[in-house]
Simulated assay, not measured.
Amino acid sequence: MAWNAFKLCTGLRVVGSVMILVVLAVVSVSYYAIVVANYGPDLFKAGYHAPVAALVIVAFHLLLAMVLWCYFAVVFTDPGSVPSDWKPASANEEDMEAQNTLLSSLPANSAAVLTAPTTQMSTSLDSPRMRFCRKCCQFKPPRCHHCSVCGRCVLKMDHHCVWVVNCVGARNYKAFLLFLFYTFLETSLVSLSLLPHFIAFFTDADDEPALPGTLATTFLAFVLDLAFALSVLGFLIMHISLVAGNTTTIEAYEKKATARWRYDLGRRKNFEQVFGTKKLFWFLPMYAEEDVRRMPVFKGLEYPVRSDMEGQEF
């Protein structure tokens, strides 16, 4: 009996739950270092300390609110799954009969059916114009992929993220990008705000020596937030390039470098495919009702293609 390594993927769900606690722990340490230990007391000092502290604390709370909003939007928003009754518009009676034959044969010999695509039935379902998932036993819409961690097909799947215990797909990709964006701003703000205290930690330049616990928290918050800022910046740059080309992480590895991407509509329209057309909603993890109603991309089942590639097989 063959050993299935993908069974280990289910363990990532447990890891993801721990990651949520890690995120909340970093937020707590940063909050204590900024608000309680350093800039909160400065609000009651004379001179320029009070207005600077007020500015830092207000900016910190605004960005923190956006980080948490976007983060939990990714965590609790279903990235999109294939409706049980969905089928391609081009599916004919032969294709549907092949699917029904496959489904009816599962209880008796599921392993053979799922691993032996050599019959005439399998050839029909594996044709370029038809995409069929042998694990979910259903047709797959364009840009849909199966996630071994979630155990289902995800619409416009980008990747499975252990940090959010969820897949990043059609319906929560915008929230994920905004989470990266606001996290970079927040961690950068914390790092810059704590930099003078971090320097004073090594130079003994602080006129009022802080308590050991405050020094330790400040040091830890600075190091963690700086590390997060640099790492998130790399992911943010990568995903900006993906949005500019209207592709996903999986598609970037799958498509040929020399082939023209059928979903590349130009940078402006590519951006709107993810963030919508209403500017007021670009920086919020939500969409205008008009965009959801008018643009099929937000349902995750249909996607506009380049005008010069319409009607071509893919």
Rank of each mutant, 00 (worst) to 15 (best):
R262N: 10
A111H: 09
Q312T: 13
C147Q: 04
M19I: 02
M19K: 03
V75R: 09
A46Y: 05
A2T: 12
K299E: 05
E290T: 14
L62K: 00
T118A: 13
R143I: 08
V168D: 03
F275I: 08
A170R: 02
S191K: 06
H61A: 11
V305R: 15
K45V: 07
K278C: 05
L192N: 11
L301G: 00
D207W: 09
V164L: 02
V56M: 10
F6W: 15
R268V: 14
D126A: 13
Q99C: 03
V149S: 13
G276V: 10
D225W: 01
L194G: 07
K278E: 06
M295K: 04
Y287D: 06
W261F: 08
F298T: 09
F198L: 04
G11L: 12
V162A: 08
A5K: 14
S17T: 10
L236V: 11
T77H: 12
A73I: 08
G16E: 00
N270H: 13
S124G: 09
S127K: 12
C144F: 02
C144V: 00
Q120D: 15
I237P: 10
V36P: 04
A37N: 15
K45I: 01
P41C: 14
C137D: 03
E289T: 15
A59D: 03
V297K: 03
V27G: 01
L180K: 08
D126M: 12
L224W: 04
L226K: 05
S84N: 03
L178T: 14
M96W: 05
L125T: 04
A46S: 06
K140Y: 03
C136H: 06
D291I: 01
A175G: 06
Y263L: 08
V190G: 08
M309N: 05
V58K: 13
T214W: 10
K87Y: 05
G80C: 01
F181Q: 02
T10C: 07
Y253W: 06
E208W: 13
